[in-house]
Every structure is written in C-alpha cells, then in structure tokens.
C-alpha cells in the first residue's frame, strides 16, 4: 500500500504566539510525510515549515532562535511536553496536535 504524501495535523498557538501567526490560535494543515532528505517529517521540520510559510510577522526570532524554538516557548505534542516525546526528533503522526505555548510573565 502506498504511503500518503501528506500528514494532516493541528497546530495551536497560545500565550501570545498567535500574534505572530495573524492572530490564529488554531491551524489545520497538511505537511509532507517525508522531507527533502527522504526522512520522516519531524518537529524540527514543522517548526521551519511554520516559520517559512505561515508566520506573518517578520520578527522570526520571536519564534525561532539559533535554529530551534526560542527559549520561553514550550512545545507540546498531544498534550505532553515534547521532552517526553523525543523533542525535535519526534516524527509527526497523522492527526497529531502540536501546541506552541509562550510563557507568560504578567501577574
């Protein structure tokens, strides 16, 4: 059976990150199953994909710094900290929910 070319996923933003993505809190999108290197698309790929194709704000360093998600942003894969799932190397599965949360400091 041939593998599907794309994976449907949900990406969500919270804690002000939605402001970088034209105020959208929830995106439903499809990403390629395999990236250029013929490896399965992982979180690192998704982050770059979001930054290059979907981020409206030119201040890219508010989302990505030194090639990875900037400090102060938690990445949550299906409601769990990405550090429980293999961080950037986690291979994205069909129907995954990836949530990016910026820490808040107000009080």
């Amino acid at each position: 059976m041939a593998t599907d070319d794309t994976i449907p996923i949900t990406v969500e933003f919270s804690g002000g990150l939605e402001l970088l993505f034209a105020n959208q809190r929830k995106l439903t999108l499809s990403i390629p199953t395999y990236n250029e290197n013929r490896t399965r698309s992982n979180i690192a790929f998704l982050v770059q994909h979001l930054c290059d194709n979907l981020m409206k704000d030119p201040r890219k360093d508010m989302f990505v710094l030194d090639g990875t998600v900037r400090p102060g942003i938690l990445v949550l894969i299906n409601e769990a900290d990405w550090e429980l799932e293999g961080e950037e190397k986690y291979e994205i599965q069909k129907g995954d929910n990836i949530l990016f949360v910026s820490t808040l400091h107000g009080g």
Partner: peptide
C-alpha cells in the same frame, strides 16, 4: 533558558 528580553510583554 530565559526568554529574550524583547519577547517579554508586561
């Protein structure tokens, strides 16, 4: 790591 100071909104 702390967030970049310019990303902190009061």
């Amino acid at each position: 790591k702390p967030p970049p100071a310019e990303s902190v909104v009061s």
